[in-house]
Amino acid sequence: MTNTPHHHPDSDLLLAYAAGTLAEAPSLVVATHLALCPHCRAEVAGMEAIGGALLSADAGMAVSDGLLSDVLSRLDGPPPAEAPRRRLAPVGPAPVLPEPLRSYIGGDIDHIRWRRTIPGLHEANVKCSGGAVRMMRIRSGMGMPQHTHRGDEFTLVLAGGFSDDTGHYLRGDFAATDPSVDHRPVADDDGDCICIAFTDAPLRLTGRFLRWLNPLMRV
């Protein structure tokens, strides 16, 4: 039996993804969780079915007289162009990064260009619209500074694990925090912890000694 995640996105977040209203940046974290979580894939499929049922139940609005003939005249032409989708050529048999994340990185984990932010923490930004997404690599056994959030933060574990007051998070687990959460995540001591995190506002350090770093925190 494959290990499936124990911590999932809230259903209102999955709903926003299924309805197509979630911005690209948080969607990237949610969709990467979906790749690792059959349970939430079924949830999203159920939510798409709700969308279908709502569409069916709608009374509808009259369309222009010529619309049908416009459509019929296009049937023998090419299918409508679609937004290009980033998809890379297949990689090795067991990539650490699932799609869609792998295509955003441009390869598997060895393609990430890490930079050191604070001792024990490496980060790399992921280009995405609608918020800041970054990869994080926390050194094995390392504790992050105590911090809280000015907005939402979604974190998905891709390798290793971490713990905080709310639980223990392993590959595929999704952690959501907001301004009410003041926590100090600690990486498991059996290997580096690699995560993808979305934030819609900068973190705020709350520990006594590190508050001076706040102006330096970019995300």
Binding site: T2, T4, A19, G20, A23, E24, S27, L28, A31, T32, L34, A35, L36, C37, P38, R41, A42, E48, G51, G52, L54, L55, E82, A83, R85, R86, R87, P90, V91, G92, P93, A94, P95, V96, L97, P98, E99, P100, L101, R102, Y104, S129, G130, G172
Partner: peptide, 30 residues
């Protein structure tokens, strides 16, 4: 609904909607 939702995202937001790849070797199967 799913086709229309994706078209709506293309048209209104012009950003991408990241999706899983069902054939991805890293995908945890159902």
């Amino acid at each position: 609904f799913a086709i229309a939702r994706n078209r709506r995202i293309d048209r209104l937001r012009r950003d991408r909607r990241p999706t899983i790849d069902p054939n991805d070797p890293a995908l945890v199967p159902d």
